[in-house]
């Protein structure tokens, strides 16, 4: 039951799950308003126990809200989660839900994963560079064998 670090990753993984099991997968969005968790006061702090209690009492005045996205497929038991507390992300996340919904109805096909393509592009560039490097090396060897030192310099250009 992993929490994924970014919304983008959650989208990528969820789209993969949807393309495998479009009919059974469900996506739940949970919006929770909770009084500040008590974890602070329950931490073992024997020395300043009385000191920490006082601020903990004043804290619940500002409850914190949280948004949890969960993709769950009951057949395979796969669960993917993403949690945020930022209001700025809401509209993008709902937009993502819309994209995934379209994929659900379509039998899991044609989900636009957005930014993923960019990373693929970068990877490809790296590969191309690698290929160019090896080709260059090969050329240098050939040219070096024929023309000696001067040839090598030409190859590098």
């Amino acid at each position: 039951m992993p929490y994924l670090p970014t919304a983008q990753l959650w989208l990528t993984q969820s789209s993969l799950l949807l393309s495998a099991r479009p009919a059974t997968t469900r996506i739940t969005t949970k919006y929770t308003i909770a009084p500040k968790p008590k974890s602070k006061s329950s931490k073992p702090k024997p020395i300043s126990a009385t000191e920490t209690e006082a601020p903990a009492l004043s804290v619940p005045a500002a409850p914190t809200a949280e948004l949890t996205l969960k993709t769950f497929d009951p057949v395979s038991g796969t669960t993917l989660k993403y949690k945020t507390n930022k209001a700025a992300e809401v509209s993008r996340l709902i937009q993502i839900l819309g994209r995934l919904a379209r994929g659900m109805g379509n039998g899991g096909k044609g989900i636009d994963v957005g930014e993923e393509r960019v990373t693929v592009g970068i990877k490809m560039e790296g590969v191309v560079e690698g290929v160019v490097e090896t080709v260059k090396e090969g050329l240098e060897k050939v040219v070096g064998g024929v023309g000696g030192g001067k040839g090598k310099k030409k190859g590098k250009k």
């Binding site: 919006y31 507390n85 509209s91 819309g98």
Partner: peptide, 22 residues
């Protein structure tokens, strides 16, 4: 779907006001 989600997003944005503002 498209039209619904646009309105759905609006409702959620307004409704989830407890989240941290930027």
């Amino acid at each position: 779907l498209e039209g619904f989600y646009a309105r759905y997003a609006e409702v959620c944005k307004v409704g989830m006001s407890g989240l941290k503002k930027r």
